[in-house]
Amino acid sequence: MKIVKYLSKVDSEKCNGDKHCEKYCPSGAIKVVEKKAVVDEDRCVACGKCYEACGEGAVQLIERTEPITIFTDPDTVDQLEIQQLCEKAGVMPDISICPCTKTTPKEIAAAIIKGAKSPEDIVLMTGTGAGCGVYCIAIVFRMFAAADIIIEDDPRWHNMTLMADDVPESIKSEHPVYRFGELF
């Protein structure tokens, strides 16, 4: 769950239209239109990437009048479907995969069942990827693969689903020091 209390705001006087903000935005909220960055307030998840990226100091985070909550309730979809997706992906449904938002695989599964088709959709439906943005994406890709949804590469993401279990047995047995095959 992500409670979005802030919002990116662009100072058009300072914006030089270099699109640094756009290429880092995980939710597609900020776009450069006619050489000036424009924020879609409904899509802004206040991750702060545009604020960080802007070398001109043209982006600030301001408080929203009303915070918005981003969450897909796993209880609103078929539990068996969630379980099957998580099992196929090889992940535990209840373990937090995003240390910033505490999102669980079952919430990601629920978002996919409700129509998420890309990492951008996942950000907008669960908040995953709206924090540090670094550690959560691998399980998201894994869940999409389990749902047979093909994620095309984008400048913002490369689809990677590899897990330790996927490593060939010959490699695992050749390198016992890494303890492949043990649960943890």
Binding site: Y135, C136, I139, H158, M160, M163, A164, V167, Y178, R179
Partner: peptide, 14 residues
């Protein structure tokens, strides 16, 4: 994404 695979899809030793 590579960093995420290292942290999330493998275990502490492998």
């Amino acid at each position: 994404e590579t960093r995420a695979v290292f942290h999330s899809n493998f275990t502490n030793r492998n």
